Amino acid sequence: MTEREVRRRPGGRSARVRQAVLDATVEVLLARGLADFRIAAVAALAGVHETSIYRRWGSREGLLGDALLRSADHELQVPDTGRLRDDLVTYAVRLATYLATPVGRALDQVLVLGDDRPAMVEARARFWAERAAGSTAMVTRAVARGELPDTVDPRLAVEMLVGPVHFRLLLTRDPVDAALATRLVDALLHGIVPP
């Protein structure tokens, strides 16, 4: 098989190199933190040249965004139970569990503590857009099933759920368990004022 055939094969060398770089990115971030994160360390750990990383990801922010989005996509599967309330509770619990891990905490650090240079702004916007595209499916499906009116803004609904989860874990350091996730979902779906 020629090198060109290997390059074109899905799951070939290019996919393995990408995987190695993204794994190394998370490992370096966890070991060194955001302030001391260096592409040179990622390149050395992954066994590639720095120029290869810059050529593919453009910047450290682009690399961090891609690595953390892949991690979040893997760990935060969007549930489809057939019932909105169950989907939202499951999703909130999964999110809280993920954000309590070292990788989840690193994700919050990158998203919150990252600066406002164009590359970071772009990486952050891409991350949230891709996460929202998946998580809003819970609300969109509920509208299609008739559980919610079609006037509901799916992204706002999801933000109203995940906002308190991020707030508790990132700012107050309070745990989020299934009971709290259920209370948050019920407040979202029914409001906090009794009928």
Rank of each mutant, 00 (worst) to 15 (best):
L64I: 03
S135V: 15
G47M: 01
V21T: 07
V152E: 12
R55Q: 12
R18P: 06
G191L: 11
R105H: 13
A43M: 10
T90F: 02
G82S: 03
G163R: 09
P149N: 10
D174F: 13
A43Y: 07
L84V: 01
R70A: 15
L184V: 04
F37S: 02
L45P: 03
Y98L: 04
L22E: 10
P79R: 00
T2R: 11
W128H: 14
V176S: 03
A46S: 02
T97F: 04
A41Y: 12
R32W: 00
A24S: 06
R168A: 15
D73V: 02
A72W: 00
A43G: 12
R173E: 15
V185N: 07
R155Y: 14
L69H: 03
L113M: 08
V17K: 02
M160N: 13
L69F: 03
E61V: 06
L180M: 07
D186P: 11
L88W: 01
A44G: 12
T136S: 15
T136Q: 15
P175R: 03
A15W: 08
L188V: 13
Y98W: 07
L68P: 01
A40C: 09
R9T: 08
A157N: 09
V93G: 06
S52V: 01
R56L: 14
A119L: 04
G146V: 09
V112L: 06
E122A: 14
R56H: 15
F37T: 01
V185C: 05
A92K: 04
E61R: 05
T136A: 14
E5L: 13
L63N: 04
H74Y: 12
T136N: 12
D66T: 11
A157Q: 14
R83F: 10
T81Y: 11
E147P: 03
D108K: 00
G47P: 01
D150V: 12
S71W: 03
R168Q: 11
L169N: 02
E27Y: 00
A96I: 08
A142H: 01
P164Q: 10
D177K: 02
A44R: 15
E5F: 09
R131S: 13
M138T: 06
V112F: 07
V28K: 05
P154D: 13
A125K: 05
R173P: 12
V158D: 02
I53G: 12
M138E: 07
R32S: 11
A125R: 10
V42D: 00
L99E: 01
